[in-house]
Amino acid sequence: MNIQSKLSKLAVGTAQFGSSYGVANQTGQVSVEDVAQILDDARNAGAMTLDTAIAYGESERVLGAQNLRGFSIITKLPAVPLGCSDIASWVEAELDASLERLGVSTIDALLLHRPGQLLESHGEDLYRAMRSQRTQGKVTRIGVSVYGPGELEDLCEAFRFDLVQAPFSVLDRRLLLSGWLERLQLQGTALHVRSVFMQGLLLMAAKDRPSKFDRWASQWSMWDRWLKEVKCSPLEACLLHALGDAQIERVVVGIDSSSQWRDILRASAGHCPPIPVELGCTDEKLLNPSFWSDL
């Protein structure tokens, strides 16, 4: 894969544009000036996908103040409120508000941040409402954002999605081991992966890694030793592992600053040997950040 092809697979994750996010984030919310620089650098590099969500604080509004011409935008609906009696009207109102904040009339994809609601009593109404927005041309694709492939079994049996977003990293190989990497491709569902840095945890030096992650010391030791042996930076290894997989359409990377984004662009053009399969982990308490506060 040439450099331009790799760069075009990058998607700018914008959670940090609207709030302080990530276990390794030491700079807080990205400044408006940095957002403008990141988008300029992304356009110049050919990385023309932006990933945001209604739940990402002021992210949509911050993006809407920028020149978004040419960018493909993905946003996500929050959980349907308890007691909501008109799902279709709620979905339309939420999406219309997103489009207004973003300053656009249409986006590439609308995903569900809480896809488990599709399996509840109002699930069919929710799915129908999303399809209606696609039919109206406000979105090109609909889909779900999941914490892991285990959620996909019931969801994909009941519904058809254009796009799935899921975690994937040098440690998290659940998509591959479960067979869902291939199954999504066979059923014509595009795959975007996130958490390739595990909120920056994989990029930390051993001395900076929070002690609550010490229970996976053997994993970290293997990771640090392998990086040293092959003379590869953790940034290069994490990025190239995901960018090199032909079954992945986009790799969403969260950005803390314009300088970090430039580092990501440079690292994406690098080289790294295949990641040892022994690095893989299946422990949800490590792979799912929603468990980290309880460690």
Results as ranks from 00 to 15, higher is better:
1 M>C: 08
1 M>D: 07
5 S>V: 00
6 K>S: 11
10 L>G: 10
14 T>V: 04
18 G>W: 04
20 S>D: 11
21 Y>T: 05
21 Y>S: 04
24 A>H: 10
25 N>A: 06
25 N>Q: 08
28 G>Y: 09
28 G>N: 07
30 V>T: 09
32 V>S: 09
35 V>C: 14
36 A>K: 13
37 Q>H: 10
38 I>L: 00
42 A>E: 08
44 N>G: 10
45 A>S: 05
46 G>L: 05
48 M>Y: 08
49 T>D: 08
53 A>V: 00
54 I>G: 01
54 I>E: 11
56 Y>H: 01
59 S>M: 00
61 R>E: 15
61 R>P: 07
66 Q>W: 00
70 G>Y: 11
70 G>W: 12
70 G>H: 14
72 S>M: 12
79 A>G: 08
81 P>Y: 03
83 G>Q: 14
89 S>G: 13
93 A>C: 04
93 A>H: 08
96 D>Q: 11
99 L>Y: 01
100 E>Y: 02
100 E>F: 01
103 G>H: 11
104 V>T: 02
108 D>R: 08
110 L>K: 06
113 H>Q: 13
114 R>P: 02
115 P>K: 03
115 P>Q: 05
117 Q>V: 00
118 L>A: 05
121 S>V: 05
121 S>Q: 06
122 H>A: 07
123 G>W: 10
124 E>F: 10
126 L>W: 10
127 Y>N: 02
128 R>F: 06
128 R>I: 09
132 S>L: 08
138 K>Y: 07
139 V>L: 04
143 G>K: 03
145 S>L: 02
148 G>N: 15
149 P>T: 08
150 G>H: 12
152 L>K: 15
153 E>W: 04
153 E>H: 11
157 E>T: 15
159 F>R: 07
159 F>G: 07
162 D>A: 03
164 V>S: 11
168 F>H: 09
170 V>I: 12
172 D>A: 03
173 R>G: 14
174 R>C: 07
176 L>K: 11
182 E>Y: 02
187 Q>A: 04
189 T>E: 05
190 A>P: 04
194 R>V: 01
194 R>F: 02
196 V>F: 02
197 F>Q: 11
197 F>M: 12
198 M>P: 01
199 Q>L: 02
201 L>H: 04
205 A>V: 05
208 D>Q: 13
208 D>E: 15
209 R>D: 08
210 P>R: 09
215 R>P: 02
216 W>C: 00
218 S>H: 05
218 S>R: 06
220 W>R: 11
227 L>S: 04
228 K>A: 15
228 K>E: 14
234 P>C: 02
237 A>K: 11
237 A>F: 01
238 C>A: 14
238 C>F: 13
239 L>W: 09
240 L>S: 13
241 H>V: 13
242 A>D: 13
243 L>G: 10
244 G>P: 00
245 D>H: 02
245 D>S: 01
246 A>G: 01
246 A>M: 09
248 I>E: 13
254 G>K: 12
256 D>L: 02
257 S>V: 00
257 S>Q: 04
258 S>T: 09
258 S>K: 15
262 R>M: 11
267 A>P: 06
267 A>M: 09
268 S>A: 15
269 A>E: 12
272 C>H: 03
275 I>E: 03
276 P>N: 01
280 G>R: 10
286 L>V: 03
286 L>A: 03
286 L>Y: 03
288 N>I: 00
288 N>V: 00
290 S>Y: 06
291 F>V: 09
294 D>P: 00
294 D>Y: 14
